[in-house]
């Protein structure tokens, strides 16, 4: 919080950013970038029932929960704007961040969906981010700079500090920080009790960051597991094992987050990796890409010697008790497994 409140003291434009979808992966980049240009970045409030309900109201009914959550956050920022707390709304069109990979079509059409869902919106700060093109990110940033009326010289330093902030963020994620912790820069201490000389259960919780790290939508699945004495690793952390991650015969998925979850999932499920006891795939109801990812992981989990696999589907109707029961059952099952490797 300290960083944010320090930033608001400045007199530059106050830019709202929805706390949803790409927020968890890219917020540090944009914070450093806009601060470097003398603007401040203000995220919407963390997801609540009211935010989700507002999102459900404004979104086409067929859309997935993450999109509904996103529109809920846009609505939250719209209200902030009406109260005079922000000046504009940052709504980039994420097309591609890594060469060859694109984002889900819903990300691609997001600014259009937002524009047509609301009547009165704050001035939109949109830009197309496509790093497949030559210097795509730089040019996108330059466009944002000119929209904010900042100087070219400020751009260079802002861009560099943004890249640095992004690299630091990704490094912390690989070291098993949560994005929320990495964003405020303080890591909450974790104490996992050891059970009679056995090492604690270690579960891979895989899924898209906007689902896994949104405590309201994911029903706090990470915290729930930790309170059961389970050590949790997420997809971002497991990506550090990049070399072992390639699956030889599969065609690559072409979506940014799905490719990450799939490759990491294959690694986590494989019998050869000794330190993961089970895999939980967190997926949103009616998520298009996940229909593919989940099926591929499910087929992989059926192979000889693969790690136990739980697919946890979430939507706006998911009850907390039911979710907890499933997690407890899965953890209990793993605890009773006599073949579990002892450290």
């Amino acid at each position: 919080m300290s960083v944010e409140s320090a930033a608001t003291v400045k007199s530059g434009p106050r830019i709202g950013i929805p706390r949803a979808l790409w927020y968890y992966t890219f917020y540090p980049f944009w914070r450093a970038f806009f601060n470097g240009l003398g603007a401040s970045l203000i995220p919407s409030s963390p997801t609540t029932k009211a935010i989700l309900d507002a999102g459900i109201l404004e979104t086409v009914s067929e859309a997935c929960v993450p999109i509904k959550v996103f529109l809920g956050h846009v609505n939250d920022l719209r209200e902030k704007w009406q109260r005079g707390e922000i000046d504009m709304l940052f709504l980039p069109r994420y097309v591609s961040w890594q060469g060859g990979l694109i984002f889900c079509p819903k990300f691609l059409g997001l600014p259009d969906m937002v524009r047509y869902a609301f009547e009165a919106l704050p001035p939109l700060l949109t830009v197309r981010i496509d790093r497949r093109t030559f210097m795509g990110l730089w040019r996108a940033c330059d466009e944002l700079r000119s929209r904010l009326g900042a100087t070219r010289s400020a751009l260079v330093s802002a861009y560099r500090s943004a890249l640095r902030a992004q690299a630091a963020h990704e490094r912390r994620l690989r070291e098993n920080w949560r994005p929320t912790e990495s964003i405020v820069g303080v890591r909450r201490p974790r104490r996992i009790p050891t059970e009679n000389a056995r090492r604690p259960l270690r579960l891979a919780v895989l899924g898209y960051p906007y689902l896994v790290y949104d405590e309201y939508v994911s029903l706090g699945v990470l915290d729930k597991l930790e309170s059961m004495g389970v050590e949790v690793v997420t997809a971002e952390t497991l990506q550090a094992q990049k070399k072992q991650l390639r699956h030889p015969e599969q065609k690559d998925l072409f979506w940014h987050y799905s490719e990450m979850v799939k490759t990491v999932g294959y690694y986590a499920l494989s019998p050869t990796n000794g330190d993961i006891d089970g895999v939980i795939h967190v997926t949103a109801f009616a998520c298009g890409p996940d229909a593919m990812v989940n099926k591929l992981l499910e087929l992989e989990a059926r192979k000889e010697g693969a790690k136990p696999f739980l697919s946890l589907g979430l939507d706006e109707e998911t009850g907390e008790a039911g979710c907890l029961t499933r997690l407890e059952a899965f953890v209990d099952m793993l605890r009773r497994n006599p073949h579990r490797v002892v450290r």
Binding site: E62, P105, G109, P289
Partner: peptide
């Protein structure tokens, strides 16, 4: 088709 991603985006735009 149900869950078709591009068509959901299109449906979001069609009312306008």
């Amino acid at each position: 088709p149900f869950t078709c991603i591009p068509e959901i985006v299109a449906k979001g735009v069609l009312p306008s």
